[in-house]
Computed example of a mutant assay.
Amino acid sequence: MSRQYIDCREYPSTMNCSVALSADSDKELLEAAVQHAVAIHGHTDSPDLRKQLASLFKPGTPPLKQTQAKAT
């Protein structure tokens, strides 16, 4: 299995979270992402949260800098 990641910088929030998580397995990444979402963002661990987070996984590793989309 290849490395995967999820990056909070891609999802605007009032706290401007800059955490990015990566792991070699989906299971490990999901557990870390759920723990982060619950402890830091105040979400409740649920099957829906887990499904939503897993759908946001991307292959590879997070970029060092997050690029912002320019307004047109």
Score class of each variant (00 low, 15 high):
residue 1 M to W: 08
residue 1 M to G: 15
residue 2 S to C: 11
residue 2 S to R: 13
residue 2 S to N: 13
residue 2 S to I: 13
residue 3 R to I: 10
residue 3 R to H: 11
residue 4 Q to Y: 06
residue 4 Q to V: 12
residue 4 Q to G: 06
residue 5 Y to K: 09
residue 5 Y to T: 05
residue 6 I to A: 00
residue 7 D to V: 02
residue 7 D to F: 05
residue 8 C to L: 01
residue 8 C to T: 03
residue 8 C to A: 12
residue 9 R to G: 02
residue 9 R to D: 03
residue 10 E to Y: 09
residue 10 E to P: 04
residue 12 P to R: 02
residue 12 P to M: 08
residue 12 P to E: 04
residue 13 S to T: 05
residue 14 T to S: 13
residue 14 T to A: 11
residue 14 T to C: 01
residue 15 M to A: 13
residue 15 M to T: 10
residue 15 M to S: 11
residue 15 M to Y: 00
residue 15 M to I: 06
residue 16 N to R: 10
residue 17 C to Q: 06
residue 17 C to K: 07
residue 17 C to R: 01
residue 17 C to V: 06
residue 18 S to H: 11
residue 18 S to C: 11
residue 19 V to N: 05
residue 20 A to Y: 06
residue 20 A to M: 02
residue 20 A to L: 00
residue 20 A to T: 08
residue 21 L to Y: 01
residue 21 L to R: 01
residue 22 S to Y: 02
residue 22 S to K: 02
residue 23 A to I: 09
residue 24 D to E: 14
residue 24 D to T: 12
residue 25 S to L: 11
residue 25 S to V: 10
residue 25 S to P: 10
residue 26 D to Y: 07
residue 26 D to N: 15
residue 26 D to L: 09
residue 26 D to T: 11
residue 27 K to W: 06
residue 27 K to A: 15
residue 28 E to S: 15
residue 28 E to A: 15
residue 29 L to Q: 04
residue 29 L to D: 04
residue 29 L to G: 01
residue 30 L to V: 02
residue 30 L to R: 05
residue 30 L to N: 08
residue 32 A to G: 06
residue 32 A to V: 09
residue 33 A to P: 04
residue 33 A to L: 06
residue 34 V to P: 00
residue 34 V to Y: 00
residue 34 V to A: 06
residue 36 H to D: 03
residue 37 A to G: 04
residue 37 A to D: 07
residue 39 A to S: 15
residue 40 I to R: 12
residue 40 I to Y: 08
residue 41 H to R: 05
residue 41 H to C: 04
residue 41 H to P: 01
residue 42 G to M: 01
residue 42 G to N: 04
residue 42 G to T: 00
residue 42 G to I: 08
residue 43 H to T: 07
residue 43 H to W: 08
residue 43 H to Q: 09
residue 44 T to Q: 12
residue 44 T to L: 11
residue 45 D to G: 03
residue 45 D to F: 04
residue 46 S to T: 15
residue 47 P to E: 08
residue 47 P to W: 07
residue 48 D to R: 13
residue 48 D to N: 14
residue 48 D to L: 13
residue 49 L to D: 03
residue 49 L to C: 04
residue 49 L to R: 03
residue 50 R to C: 07
residue 50 R to E: 04
residue 51 K to L: 05
residue 51 K to F: 09
residue 51 K to I: 00
residue 52 Q to L: 10
residue 52 Q to D: 15
residue 53 L to Y: 05
residue 54 A to T: 02
residue 54 A to M: 10
residue 55 S to K: 05
residue 55 S to I: 01
residue 55 S to V: 07
residue 57 F to V: 00
residue 57 F to D: 07
residue 57 F to H: 01
residue 58 K to R: 15
residue 59 P to N: 10
residue 59 P to D: 14
residue 59 P to E: 09
residue 60 G to V: 05
residue 62 P to L: 04
residue 62 P to F: 02
residue 62 P to I: 03
residue 62 P to Y: 03
residue 62 P to Q: 08
residue 63 P to I: 00
residue 64 L to H: 10
residue 64 L to Q: 13
residue 65 K to W: 13
residue 65 K to G: 11
residue 66 Q to T: 13
residue 66 Q to A: 14
residue 68 Q to T: 15
residue 69 A to R: 14
residue 69 A to H: 14
residue 70 K to R: 13
residue 70 K to L: 15
residue 70 K to H: 13
